[in-house]
C-alpha cells in the first residue's frame, strides 16, 4: 500500500563527465579536433603549397598522380597536392559547415519557436514567410545575394545561413506547437513564468534532439551547397580550395582518378559523422530520463 520507493543512487556526475564516459562521443570529439587542428595548422603540416602546380605532380601523359609516393593522397588535374588542398579546404568547409550551418540553425530555431509558441498573426506571418522561402529556389536566391555583394567566404556563409534555415524553422515550429499545449507549460504559466523563461528554460531543452539531427544533416548539405555556389562562380573563388569545390572540379574524372572525389568526400563524411556522434551522445546525456542507461 505504500508508494513505490525510490531506489537510492549515488549523486550523478555532471553532463561533461557523462559525455566523456561514452566512447563514441570521445571518438567524435577527436575527429572534430583533427579537422579543426588540420584547418588551423594547415600551413605547418601541409607538405605543399595548395596553389602550387607541381611539375612532377602529373604523369608523363598529363594525368593526375594516384595516392602514394611524394603525394600521400595523390594530385589533382593541375598537379596540385590533394592532401594540402584538403587541409586548406578544411578552413572553408568548417566555416561553411559549422558556422553558416550553425547560423541557419539559430535562425530556424528562433523563427520556429516564436511562431510555434505565439501562433496567431505573429506565427502566421513568420510561417508564411518560411513557406515563401521554401518555395523560392534556394540556389537562385543565393546567386542573387552573392551577385549583389562581392563574393567572399563570409558572404557565402551568410547566404547559406539565409537560405538553409527554413527546414529547421518548419520542424521546430511543429514541435513547439505541440510542446506549448503540454500541461507542464500551462503549469509554468499558472506559476507566473514569463514568456522568455517558458521559451528558453522549458521549451528549448525539449527541442535539443531535433536541433541536433538537423544540425548534423545540415553539415553535409551546406558544404555541398557552398561547392555548388563556387561552381556557379558565386562562391569561394578558385583557386581557394574547399572540400566541395574539389569534388566539383574533379567529378567528371571520377572514373579515371577516383581519389580526387573520394578523399574530399570522406572528409565531409568524417566531419558530419563526428558531429553526429557527439550530437547523439549530447542528446542522451542531456535527457534525464535516460540516466543510468549509459
Amino acid at each position: 500500500m505504500t508508494d513505490i520507493a525510490v531506489p537510492d543512487r549515488a549523486l550523478p556526475p555532471g553532463p561533461l563527465a557523462r559525455l566523456m564516459r561514452r566512447k563514441l562521443a570521445v571518438f567524435g570529439l577527436l575527429l572534430i579536433a583533427l579537422v579543426v587542428g588540420g584547418a588551423i595548422f594547415a600551413p605547418l603540416i601541409a607538405p605543399f603549397d595548395p596553389f602550387q602546380q607541381n611539375f612532377d605532380g602529373l604523369t608523363i601523359e598529363g594525368a593526375p598522380m594516384p595516392p602514394g609516393g611524394a603525394y600521400p593522397l595523390g594530385t589533382d588535374l593541375l598537379g596540385r597536392d590533394l592532401l594540402s588542398r584538403i587541409l586548406y579546404g578544411a578552413r572553408t568547409s568548417l566555416i561553411i559547415g559549422v558556422l553558416a550551418n550553425g547560423m541557419a540553425l539559430l535562425i530556424g530555431t528562433l523563427v520556429g519557436i516564436t511562431a510555434g509558441y505565439f501562433r496567431g498573426w505573429v506565427g502566421s506571418i513568420l510561417m508564411r514567410f518560411t513557406d515563401l522561402m521554401m518555395a523560392f529556389p534556394a540556389l537562385l536566391l543565393a546567386i542573387c545575394l552573392a551577385a549583389i555583394f562581392t563574393p567572399s567566404l563570409w558572404i557565402v556563409a551568410m547566404v547559406i545561413a539565409l537560405v538553409n534555415w527554413v527546414q529547421t524553422a518548419r520542424v521546430i515550429y511543429t514541435e513547439t506547437t505541440s510542446l506549448a499545449e503540454r500541461d507542464f507549460i500551462a503549469a509554468e504559466r499558472t506559476l507566473g513564468a514569463g514568456t522568455g523563461r517558458i521559451l528558453f528554460r522549458h521549451i528549448l531543452p525539449h527541442l535539443v534532439p531535433t536541433i541536433i539531427v538537423w544540425g548534423t544533416l545540415g553539415i553535409s548539405t551546406t558544404v555541398l551547397l557552398e561547392a555548388t555556389l563556387s561552381y556557379l562562380g558565386v562562391g569561394v573563388q578558385p583557386p581557394t580550395p574547399s572540400w566541395g569545390n574539389i569534388i566539383f572540379e574533379n567529378q567528371t574524372y571520377f572514373q579515371a582518378a577516383p581519389w580526387l572525389v573520394f578523399f574530399p568526400g570522406a572528409a565531409i563524411l568524417m566531419l558530419a559523422l563526428a558531429f553526429n556522434l557527439v550530437g547523439d551522445a549530447l542528446r542522451d546525456v542531456l535527457d534525464p530520463t535516460l540516466r543510468g542507461s549509459d
Binding site: 500551462a186 509554468e188 506559476l191 507566473g192 513564468a193 525539449h206 535527457d287
Partner: peptide, 28 residues
C-alpha cells in the same frame, strides 16, 4: 491561486529536477 493538474507526469517538466521544479515559483 495555484492549480494542480490531473496528470502529474504531464504537469512536471521532465528535464528538471524535483528541487528545480519546486523552486521554480520561488525563482519566478
Amino acid at each position: 491561486v495555484q492549480i494542480i493538474f490531473q496528470d502529474p507526469m504531464a504537469a512536471l517538466d521532465p528535464r528538471m529536477t524535483v528541487g528545480g521544479l519546486i523552486a521554480e515559483p520561488l525563482v519566478i
